[in-house]
Design a protein around this nucleic acid. Structure first.
Lengths: 223, 223
DNA sequence: CACCGCCTGTCAGCGTATTGTCAGGGAGGA
DNA sequence: TCCTCCCTGACAATACGCTGACAGGCGGTG
């Protein structure tokens, strides 16, 4: 899961980035609305954390532009403590959620999980596919009840596929969502992680559709 | 739109009900968790406004039961002002949103609009032509209910024709759209793919218009 | 500061599915 | 009938995906 943080205060931005990375996400930071808009158009993110008070281009405007362009990217906005009017505007402009500053990192993570979950059309924070369970809160993964310990990337890969359960995910998309913007990777990197992940899982949860991509079946069944 | 309000304090419940009705919704009120659970099972609501502090059966429990039963009903929870821990639990239990008491009616309405909007926007893009169905999310193709497995190019060819359903597509255009700009192919390559595709489909879905191109009829019928 | 161990990206080799080309045949239109 | 255009089977080249091995990097530990 790759998140775009839009926050002009470097200190806060860095805190959020660290928090998100601890939470198992990949995050890019931009400091103004203009760049945010550009970045969101050009790169692919799974969600955006958006501060409303921004230089150059106001956060609400960024959000409205996104929605006007039919981009359904989940957006979590950050507002001042007593700005309920601001929050109502934000929600009507298409925000999926808000958080008032200052906030607990833990709450930001919970709300992020929630909007990501919703975007995937899921109701529960525990993602399931057949014998496989992935708890997004604790990041525990178990198969047939047995806990398996995954590395950061293995987890991200699996979580991403589960979020898009029932859909075929092309390898290029995985490349986009598993790594932040700073890095270039060979497509083979995905295959390597996948091999190791499959070995750990020990059950055929992840299907390959040659020429199309990878897939975790909606009910966990293998065709 | 019909909303279920779960709130044990009659005064607040009445306020919310009034507010929702002013906002154009229909609302029912129940005062305890047990009834809420029963009511949500028996009647059909478009969303639920759920107070967490409830007699008989706690709000969180109601929510978890709903989610355990795979009910995706949008739920907005009401929490105390400083209960961020409670909110995190609520969100992880599957709440779509929360609001801290006391709140502005206007904000409740905005958040309700938001979760209803979200719940509505989940349609699967499936292309159809007669007995043929192509699901762009899973890349599953089925004809008369029977799944057929297509290679990357067969899929692209079929998808392209379906996108332009009812129109005659010249082979040169297919050449342009199936391959990237760098490569030169014999026009025969298209014919070869088409032959294999037709054999897999087993039904005359793709017509040839000699001298013009290929066509998938708008209703899937063959003239 | 040095060491160690784990994580992870790259490379190369392998097996297999996919796909372009070729050549021959069939059908439609003039 | 003749000339195109299109279809199709066979085959070879290619691309794709999987895996084992290796090495650099990073963080933790003594």
């Amino acid at each position: 899961m790759r998140i775009l943080i839009v926050e002009d205060e470097p200190r806060i931005a860095a805190d959020i980035k660290t928090g998100l990375e601890r939470g198992g996400y990949v995050a890019d930071v931009v400091g103004d609305g203009e760049t945010a808009w550009f970045q969101a158009e050009v790169e692919s993110y799974d969600a955006m954390v958006l501060d409303l008070g921004l230089p150059r281009l106001d956060g609400l405007t960024v959000l409205r532009r996104l929605r006007a362009a039919d981009r359904t990217l989940p957006v979590l906005i950050l507002t001042a403590r007593d700005g309920w009017r601001e929050r109502v505007d934000g929600i009507d402009a298409g925000a999926d959620d808000y958080l008032t500053k200052p906030f607990h990192m833990e709450e930001l993570l919970a709300r992020l999980r929630a909007i990501l979950r919703r975007a995937a059309g899921q109701a529960s924070p525990v993602l399931k596919a057949g014998p496989l369970e992935l708890d997004t809160r604790t990041r525990d993964v178990s198969i047939a009840g047995r806990l398996v310990s995954l590395t950061a990337l293995e987890y991200r890969l699996l979580a991403y596929l589960l979020h898009r359960q029932g859909q075929v995910v092309p390898p290029t998309e995985l490349l986009d969502h598993l790594y932040d913007g700073a890095s270039e990777r060979e497509p083979n990197a995905i295959e390597a992680i996948l091999t190791r992940l499959r070995r750990k899982l020990g059950a055929p949860v992840i299907e390959t559709r040659r020429g199309h991509g990878y897939l975790v079946a909606a009910d966990g069944a293998v065709s």
